[in-house]
Computed example of a mutant assay.
Amino acid sequence: MHITKRFDRLLGIYFYLQSKPLVKAQELADKYEVSLRTIYRDIKSLEHAGIPIMGEAGYGYSLLNSYKIQPIRFNEQEALSFGVAEKLMNHYLDKEMAMHFGNALLKMKGVLRYSDKENVADLESKVLINKKKNFLNENVPAALATLFESMVKKRQIHLKYKSVENNLQERAIEVVGVFQEGPFWYFMAYCHLREAIRQFRLDRIEHIRLLDSKYTQELLPLNTYLEQNKKVETLQTIRIWVSKDFARFLQWERLHYGFQHEEEINNGVEMTFHTTHIEYFARWYMMFADEAQILEPETLKQSVVNLIQAALKKLD
């Protein structure tokens, strides 16, 4: 069993090296959940097997460009993953990116055994994923594809972007990276209008166009800016009580609002959240306010009161 597990890992490391221009040992150790020493031994084993690996510990590893072996067949579990992959990508990617992924997946399905193709087709008919409204920007179907192309080619983007106040602004940006948080896609970019790194939301793009102008900034990795934002923003603790019968309906959505832990108390469930956006949380809370109670903070109670008063005025 141990020998089989190591063989699978060695094979996996080879294909991982084949898929990327440079791979650090720590990246491999994290992926396969082993020590750095184990990865160093694995790399040596692959080299002894005649695989031309360039690089060294502390820098990174890569395969000789001209070296390739024929791809092996997918096993049954890998083949079945195709059954849901395309539907998931149709949900999480915009129209153009989903089309490219679908074309790539068709080529991958082409090498499956006939029995696996039958199983994948059967599984696909039994998986349904409902796309949420406003999750993606249907009016700009190539938005994600353009962002990705910008990052690869290091070319600036021209945006027509709707701000939080609904003002339409034109901006030239240099994209740092793209990420998903809660029910939306976001991207971080250097904004030439503000002369600073700013965060944007995909569904607020009115028009997007790739420019010929190259990047002018030395941009850091996306995670660096996300961590900086976390340090600037102050996390606030929220505690609410929800009736036991209703609490089960919040199991999925609460994860998007900073859920930390829960405790059964007073024939209900006390939930604790950490958030930087009290008003955002208040709008979600209003969906089940008749079955819940705010324990803290007072600012959340006031935000809910303000929302209720604003709604009542519109009913007059």
Rank of each mutant, 00 (worst) to 15 (best):
S62E: 06
L28T: 01
K31R: 15
M89T: 09
L88S: 10
N65A: 13
Y61P: 03
Y14E: 05
L36G: 05
H48T: 07
E33V: 02
I51E: 03
L46I: 07
L28W: 02
E47T: 15
E96G: 01
K24R: 12
Q18K: 15
A79P: 05
G50D: 06
L88P: 00
L46R: 02
A25H: 06
Y16L: 13
Y59H: 14
K95T: 14
Q70A: 14
N75V: 01
V84Y: 08
I53Q: 06
G50I: 05
G50F: 08
S81I: 10
G83Q: 07
L22G: 07
V34Y: 07
K68N: 14
L17F: 04
A79R: 01
D42Y: 02
S35M: 10
R41E: 04
I39R: 01
S81A: 13
M54I: 12
H91P: 00
R41P: 00
G83N: 10
L80V: 01
L93S: 14
S45L: 08
Y32W: 15
L88C: 13
V84H: 02
L64N: 12
A98D: 03
P21Q: 08
F82Q: 02
N90G: 13
I72W: 12
F74V: 05
E33L: 11
G50P: 00
V23Q: 00
L46A: 03
L22N: 11
L22F: 09
K95Q: 14
L46M: 08
S45Q: 10
P52G: 07
Y16M: 12
L22K: 15
Y16H: 12
E27Y: 04
Y92D: 10
I43N: 02
L17M: 06
N65D: 15
M97P: 00
K95A: 12
A25Q: 11
L17R: 02
Q26H: 08
S62F: 11
E78K: 08
I69F: 06
I51R: 03
L17W: 00
D94F: 07
R41D: 05
F15H: 15
A79Y: 01
E96L: 12
R41V: 00
M97A: 14
G55K: 03
S62Q: 13
D94S: 14
Y67C: 04
P21Y: 05
S62I: 01
V23I: 13
A25E: 09
G58C: 09
